[in-house]
Nucleic acid binder design. Structure first.
Lengths: 317, 317
DNA sequence: CGCACGCCTGAAAATATCTTCCAAGGGTGA
DNA sequence: TCACCCTTGGAAGATATTTTCAGGCGTGCG
């Protein structure tokens, strides 16, 4: 039942199905996982996933048959949903559910934070926003496939040249990544103009790395250059909230960001950005670790170079 | 508190003893229970109880048969032990075990708050980074002066025109703010080129708002335009980690971001960015709340306008 | 010292639960 | 409108759990 994912070989780039990034997700990641996967689920499966995410404690008590009944579906569907969430079967999902319930009970509760209302006072907004973003970070960390990160870091470290694609809000994340990598001596660029991005992607070849950042996984302006890079033989990475989206077809390594629930006052852009930045930071640190000899001097050099752009310290202490 | 376990019929349940204090013991109580009951157990049962108390996580993975094998006993004995510990059967003991394991895990998790080392495995890096950023968010939220935020929001809401200044890492945050404000119909721009920034700042006057973003509070390229805007009579905001820095002299309202400890592998840019973004988000939400009538339609309009830039959904359902 | 009783124990049968397979229903695109 | 594919639930098949039952061992009494 090995899911021989990734690996060097390019051709059998599995499309979708069975997720299962190597190991069963821990209880913590479950809620996040449900949100991530929900869009790619069928109606019945969504009902099951919803029930599970909404009342872990209650569902943990139910047998397959019970849960099927409660959700008005069949046992088969329940098992299918369990699979999709990354467990070998319902039995294991149930175990994770019990774990989640226990955690929530004990106060380590990832309990759902309240939506921000139009008339919330500003203090409340600050608190809710901070909490939401903290939750997003936790979800992202829990949902990240370490092996994929590792592979991505390796590719970046060895890259002759790195291109980063992103538009809109993701464009800023792309710039952040490129900026960081440049700072430690890598050759990284980002292209805001999608036409130029494609033009540049054509230049890539094996040994180069292309990174695409899109929350929806369906942004054509980002998919196109990645596809081109993929076809040219470059190693391709996708940072997306929809690992089953079209972008994944052209990505050697997919780094999944968390999908928080949106609300009218809190567009998805906000938490997806937080999530993407965490991934970017992880990549950066990973690369910096592996190129420490050159990265450290490069970092301080760039810092020194900017020193004169700062006004003198008020008082030397 | 539905007690209706195992629906249909199980009338002649607990035969003897079984304690049965009305409800199955929570996971927490398990270890204690084992100690209490141990003396009154037979040898084989003790072996089972011991295994269960010693390695809840491991045992939760095992089936009756597996646990029987591991303890060198039989399935029947395992079930009997489960009963003695207060559960209807092994199935339920196993669920409790999973819960216990999850609790232990979550309790042990926050122990990794150390610095990121050069040889940390990637999984550790992810965890530490996420935790660090969570901490940063909490610090920022705690340190933000609500009154200043409120005043800043008011100024932005009423602004005829908004300029945002930031260079380097803060430049991306500046772009993020401008992007967001534009989305809800405000006139906001950011200037990467410090010369152009000053040129533009000269145009500002009372009723306009200038926002400067700098972690150090000493970045001349950002201080300059803010000073100019300040002199021209615009309302000026500073988002900085050094509220006592030079920039504060030219700011009507100072929003303080948190200053996390840096380390060699984790330049300050990382957490300052997280912190700045939270502040930006708060400003954005604050403004959106107060201009809800126009903001909401503007948001969906900008979303619609970009719809065609997305590839069609894989399958419409 | 020997016997009988009773309790512990594990093997196997019985039951419950989970998983897989398959055919029917429904929606989509040509 | 038709053909296709995807989704879905029912039922058979496989596992896991629970119950039953008989043998073994120790203990206490005769």
């Amino acid at each position: 039942m090995k899911e021989t994912f990734s690996l060097p070989s390019r051709p059998p780039n599995q499309t979708r199905g069975t997720a299962a990034p190597g190991r069963t997700p821990g209880p913590t990641a479950l809620a996040a996982k449900v949100r991530t996967m929900a869009p790619s689920m069928t109606r019945s499966m969504q009902r099951v996933a919803e029930a599970v995410a909404g009342d872990p404690a209650g569902c943990a008590q139910l047998t397959v048959t019970g849960l099927a009944e409660r959700t008005g579906t069949s046992e088969a569907t329940v098992v299918r949903t369990s699979r999709l969430l990354g467990y070998p079967g319902y039995r294991d999902l149930r175990l994770a559910l019990a774990g989640l319930a226990a955690q929530q009970e004990s106060g380590a509760a990832p309990a759902v934070t309240a939506d921000i209302a139009v008339d919330d006072p500003i203090g409340e907004v600050v608190a809710k926003l901070a909490l939401d973003e903290q939750q997003t970070l936790a979800d992202t960390a829990a949902g990240l496939d370490t092996a994929q990160v590792e592979a991505a870091v390796m590719a970046l470290t060895a890259a002759r040249r790195i291109d980063v694609y992103g538009v809109g809000a993701s464009g800023l994340v792309a710039q952040d990544l490129a900026q960081k990598l440049l700072r430690i001596g890598l050759v990284a660029h980002t292209h805001a103009d999608p036409h130029l991005a494609v033009t540049n992607a054509v230049q890539l070849r094996a040994g180069d790395v292309a990174v695409a950042i899109t929350h929806s996984g369906r942004t054509v302006d980002v998919i196109e250059p990645l596809r081109v890079a993929f076809d040219r033989g470059a190693t391709t990475l996708a940072i997306t909230g929809r690992p089953e989206g079209e972008i994944a077809q052209y990505a050697d390594h997919v780094l999944t960001t968390s999908t928080a629930r949106e609300s009218e006052l809190r567009p998805a852009a906000m938490s997806s950005r937080t999530s993407q930045l965490l991934v970017v930071d992880c990549l950066f640190i990973g690369v910096a670790q592996r190129t420490y000899e050159t990265a450290a001097p490069a970092l301080s050099a760039s810092y020194e170079a900017l020193a004169h752009r700062h006004s003198p310290r008020p008082r030397a202490r």
